[in-house]
Design a binder for these strands. Structure first.
Lengths: 194, 194, 194, 194
DNA sequence: AATGAATGAGAATTCATTCAT
DNA sequence: CATGAATGAATTCTCATTCAT
């Protein structure tokens, strides 16, 4: 009595986003056609255009919905003092945000070339650079700057690459966060000490 | 004595690879059309097909030519004892290989989704996993495993992301390598100590 | 009351089939390009793809629509007793079916090589073999088997080859049918007598 | 000592024709590309152009070489009295000519649409019509005209269609010829009697 | 007697997008 | 809220043919 019919009605927009993200993540943005999305949803291509003005807009809308937490994190971070505690907190929260929207971030990671040409390219880059600039002390030694960046990267790539390593996902995330925290700590100490 | 005129005649194949890589890296594989490559070379599309059977084959040939050093590295590495020195040496050589074929690796990094569907996807993955499996001790704590993987990643991503950070490229590479070495060292010690 | 204006809107699919068959019959399947079909219809190539998934599908759809009578004939024939009357009736009906879809059969006759590689090749062959196996007694003398086959062939080829012979088409068809009937009768008598 | 090397030297032209006919018969004229022919011969496409001016010329040359007997038959036939004996002799000889160059005739049969546009289309048609006009009495009843044509057709199609019928090829050919002879005899008698 | 390198024309197919209904 | 029908532009790829060497 609720299987397949009830869950329509007004949520088409949402369903488009879901299916689109799924396909984008699976095959890439360019290789995913609107026909495919429409077919999988059981609607016509034209229906997609009722909800979104362009293919790109579908992606943008997904991006905006799913990265709001990151946006807020960046905003929050900007106003914090650049203490080690702040940095730890940033990593902790970022790690959470990443895993909450894992498919999207996996997609972004794997489609950088495509994204660069799209409007979300800049948005994403800005957010990332925002974080980087807060974590990183431009006065610090190069090695320590690399450590900061590496911390961010470890977070980013960690989950995708560790997928075929044994172990519970929660544990892995914890381990990844620990390494990132370690790196940022070293970087911070280095910067202070110099 | 060989500046601009001699080269032509017989080097078309090479020139196609060069231009293709340039465009692939710039715009992504899918967004680069054979028309574009041909135009930039001043030949017809059909000429490309004289030298390569498909678009994919162009990419494959570039990949094969440029990643031979990595292939050799992996082979060499497999036969070494898993000492810390070996690991350092691997990172050192890998860093070199990466920067020797930087545009290709940048391309691979930014087009993962595309590459996954292509035949080089597996080749590349295998090579990477080969390295990973040599650097990483499956008995070690998860954190240390993450450190090993992170070392590899730092190398990989380091250069691309640090592009807009101040500093001489050589220095940056050295810094990146240092951080990677650090990570692998910690991972190694952890594994020994446990 | 329906001459030239009403038809449009909704009959595009049909019009594509008509024009396609006309051109296929005139120039052969391979030499007829989708551009040509589209142009003659005053639509774009893409419009054809809205109605049919591939070029081959256009042909298949024509074939299926136009050979349904033959299919039914075969089915009917399978359930009849193998009497001489049955055989005569088969030839009579087949002759009718052939001339009702003459352009298609002319096309099939003249494009056997092409058709063999296409999916309709088998369908057609099966239908034909079905008829043949009903008309032909495998126990009969070779000559009589040849007569049976020849009856079928006379029907098939008769019309096309007699096109430049004088005489009214109806009369010709009758003559062709008579010869075919004659052949099958001889074959049947032979088989009985032996 | 003679396997693969000796049988070169000057016979390339012949080998091209052989391979071409084989492929034409197998896949049709249009679907057979010069690349394919060249590859199977182990030479380059350009080599084909040394021996033949165009693709069509390859076919024409095969046709001319292989249908000379038919040409001669037609010429001979034209000068004979239109007796029943003559007609029998024509069928006998034609049957022989057909089976001597079976692959070519199979090809012609299966590629009529293609051939019609080619220069050999007319040549072939003329030859056939030549035979037909000798066998057929334009004054005769339509049925008898059909019988004459049918005799020719039985010869033509007989072999190809009987391929999956049991029995020795020689026997089949004899049977086919017998039926054709029968048909022409009836036609002849009818014409005389009327 | 043949090759290597290339071309120009054209093929089938796919895609994002539009719009009247 | 959505569909049916269509378009224009592009894409990958194939083919017969040419010509300098």
């Amino acid at each position: 009595m609720d299987g397949t019919k009830q869950r329509r009605r007004g949520d088409t927009r949402q369903r488009i986003q879901d299916v689109a993200l799924e396909l984008f993540a699976e095959q890439g943005y360019e290789k995913t056609s609107l026909r495919e999305i429409a077919e999988r949803l059981g609607v016509t291509k034209a229906a997609l255009y009722y909800h979104f003005k362009t293919k790109e807009e579908i992606l943008v809308s997904i991006f905006e919905d799913l990265t709001r937490p990151v946006e807020e994190l960046v905003e929050w971070a900007r106003q914090q003092p650049r203490t080690l505690e702040t940095k730890h907190e940033i990593l902790r929260r970022y790690s959470e945000a990443l895993s909450a929207a894992a498919p999207l971030f996996r997609f972004m990671q794997e489609n950088q070339a495509t994204i660069r040409e799209l409007s979300i390219g800049d948005m994403f880059k800005n957010r990332l650079m925002g974080l980087r600039d807060i974590l990183l002390d431009p006065e610090a030694e190069l090695v320590d700057q690399v450590r900061s960046v590496s911390a961010l990267f470890t977070l980013h790539a960690g989950m995708h690459v560790l997928q075929d390593v044994e172990g519970d996902p929660g544990d892995k995330r914890k381990a990844v966060l620990e390494v990132a925290t370690d790196l940022i700590t070293q970087a911070h100490r280095g910067a202070q000490g110099s």
